[in-house]
C-alpha cells in the first residue's frame, strides 16, 4: 500500500525545481546586485577629493599615492592620484577613512588584464573610470548621493571655482 509514496515525494521535489526560478545569474548579461558593504573595486571621484591623503595613510599596503600643490585660496590641487591595483587588497579602509567619501567601493568586475602593469591606475585613468561608473549608474555615487552632472576637465581639475 505504501509502495510508491517515496518515489512520488521525490518526483514532487523534481517538479518543484523544474518550475521555480533558476538560481544561476548569467553573469555577462545579468549581474547579481552588489551588497552594500561588499568589498569590490574602488572608484575615486576627483570632484570630491580635497587631497588630504587620509586614504593613503589608512592604506595597509601603501598602494595609494597622492601628490598635492597648495592653491592660493588655501585648498589643494591634486597633482597626482595613483592607485596600484596590483597590490591593493580591496579592504576598503581607504573608503572608510575618507572624510569626503571621495573614494568609494562599488566598481565593476570586468577589470581583468593581460599585462599586470595595466592595473596601475593614474589620475586620468581613475577619472575616466569614475565617469564611466557615473554614466552607467544614472549619475548617483555608490553611497547613494546624487552627482552633479558636469564636464570633468581632462586633467581632472576641480571645476568649483
Amino acid at each position: 500500500m505504501a509502495y510508491g509514496i517515496g518515489i512520488a515525494k521525490g518526483l514532487l521535489t523534481t517538479v518543484k525545481h523544474l518550475v521555480r526560478e533558476p538560481t544561476t545569474f548569467e553573469f555577462p548579461e545579468a549581474e547579481r546586485p552588489i551588497p552594500p558593504r561588499a568589498r569590490t573595486n574602488l572608484v575615486w571621484f576627483v570632484e570630491r577629493c580635497t587631497g588630504c591623503s587620509t586614504c593613503a595613510q589608512a592604506c595597509p599596503d601603501g598602494c595609494i599615492l597622492v601628490q598635492t600643490q597648495p592653491r592660493e585660496d588655501g585648498s589643494y590641487l591634486v597633482e597626482r592620484y595613483e592607485i596600484d591595483f596590483r597590490l591593493c587588497m580591496y579592504c576598503g579602509l581607504c573608503a572608510e577613512a575618507c572624510p569626503y567619501e571621495a573614494i568609494q567601493v562599488g566598481g565593476s568586475y570586468t577589470n581583468v588584464v593581460r599585462d599586470p602593469n595595466d592595473l596601475y591606475h593614474d589620475k586620468p585613468t581613475l577619472t575616466s573610470l569614475a565617469n564611466e561608473y557615473l554614466d552607467a549608474h544614472d549619475w548617483i555615487y555608490p553611497n547613494g548621493q546624487p552627482a552633479v552632472r558636469q564636464e570633468i576637465h581632462p586633467a581632472g581639475e576641480r571645476q568649483h571655482h
Partner: peptide
C-alpha cells in the same frame, strides 16, 4: 595569460577573466 585582480576576486571577476 590573464590576470584577475581582487582580494579575493568575486566569481564575476573570475568569469570575466575566463571570457578574456
Amino acid at each position: 595569460d590573464v590576470y584577475v585582480p581582487g582580494c579575493p576576486p568575486r566569481p564575476e571577476s573570475l568569469l570575466s577573466g575566463l571570457m578574456l
